[in-house]
């Protein structure tokens, strides 16, 4: 039971890293990417190959994954520079499908459909990370670091420029900022962070196969960001926690296991549509609404008391 909880928390932390990194592109950058699982996968495959053939050092794996993930991000960024909005969605979908095909078919490197197995545990400063507890500590720390980085970035001039790019590209370029450059950096950065999650995933599960990096996974990451609240620091982690923990709660309903997945996704789909109609800022938007209402109510009560 403890190990079940621990693995649930590890997956939540991974989801938080992924959702926060996707949020950079989707929420702040306004570029709607549905290819984030590709970078997750690139990171995972990079770490697995390194661990199997060269070294299982976590630091080295993360550094290499940042490089390969960043390069994959640049590949996606190329269409992002030429097309906008809905067309970028489609470009990223195409990118995801091609990458899935490559993961599945490039047997010599990715091991094809069977994937790569027997990945040794990672080592960090001479310690082996082989227990659930150790994984949980490392993953949570990195998730916290990612959240801190995203929050700091968004307070910096980079973050302001990025939001300006989303809201009014012409205004931004008239201020002398280069939109192309900004988009490139954002997509690459986001891909780098996602590939770090991939490294942690590969070492935790000790095997990788293409099934973990499909379009469905990308869509789930998007769902996390959207449900939580795109373009906010706390939305994506909230959404990530919701999407990872909700299925666990659902399993208490004693549904047949074949129905669990569809019921879950059906719920997400309905939530997404309803949120977009009534509260596009997601859970964070709902929380803000509750708080505003409270402040107003308090104000009314306060003035009533003053009048009495």
């Amino acid at each position: 039971m403890i190990s079940y909880l621990e693995s649930l928390l590890i997956f939540t932390a991974l989801a938080i890293i992924l959702a926060s990194s996707l949020n950079l592109v989707l929420g702040y950058g306004g570029m709607f990417s549905v290819a984030h699982a590709v970078f997750y996968g690139v990171g995972a495959y990079t770490a697995s190959l390194l661990a199997l053939h060269l070294s299982n050092s976590l630091v080295l794996s993360i550094l290499c994954a940042i490089i390969t993930g960043g390069l994959a991000g640049l590949l996606l960024a190329v269409p992002a520079l030429r097309v906008k909005e809905e067309y970028f969605v489609v470009a990223s979908l195409g990118f995801q499908i091609i990458a899935s095909t490559v993961f599945n078919q490039w047997d010599a490197v990715t091991g094809g459909i069977g994937g790569l197995t027997g990945i040794p545990p990672a080592s960090l400063f001479g310690y082996e990370i082989d227990s659930y507890g150790a994984h949980l500590v490392v993953t949570s720390l990195l998730a916290a670091a990612v959240l801190a980085i995203v929050a700091a970035l968004m307070r910096s001039s980079f973050g302001r420029a990025l939001r300006a790019l989303r809201d009014d590209e012409q205004a931004l370029s008239s201020l002398g900022r280069n939109p192309t450059h900004l988009r490139l950096v954002t997509v690459a950065l986001s891909a780098m962070i996602a590939s770090v999650a991939g490294v942690l995933y590969a070492y935790f599960t000790s095997f990788v196969n293409p099934e973990s990096f499909t379009l469905d996974e990308s869509v789930m990451m998007m769902v996390m960001v959207i449900i939580g609240g795109a373009g906010t620091v706390w939305g994506p982690p909230l959404g990530a926690a919701f999407v990872t923990i909700f299925p666990a709660l659902l399993s208490f309903l004693k549904l047949p296991s074949s129905l669990l997945g569809p019921v879950q996704r059906l719920t997400y789909g309905v939530i997404m549509t309803l949120l977009m109609i009534y509260e596009p800022a997601g859970i964070v938007g709902l929380l803000r609404w509750v708080r505003r209402r409270q402040i107003i109510l308090n104000g009314i009560n306060g003035s009533n008391r003053a009048a009495a």
């Binding site: 709607f32 809905e86 996704r265 309905v270 549509t273």
Partner: peptide, 27 residues
Amino acid sequence: SASLTIFVASFGLFIAAENAVILVFGS
């Protein structure tokens, strides 16, 4: 609403409908 918001709503509809079909007919 912004066009991307409408797209996301449509995407949500798509996911919901697809999984409703899976619930009824299996995958």
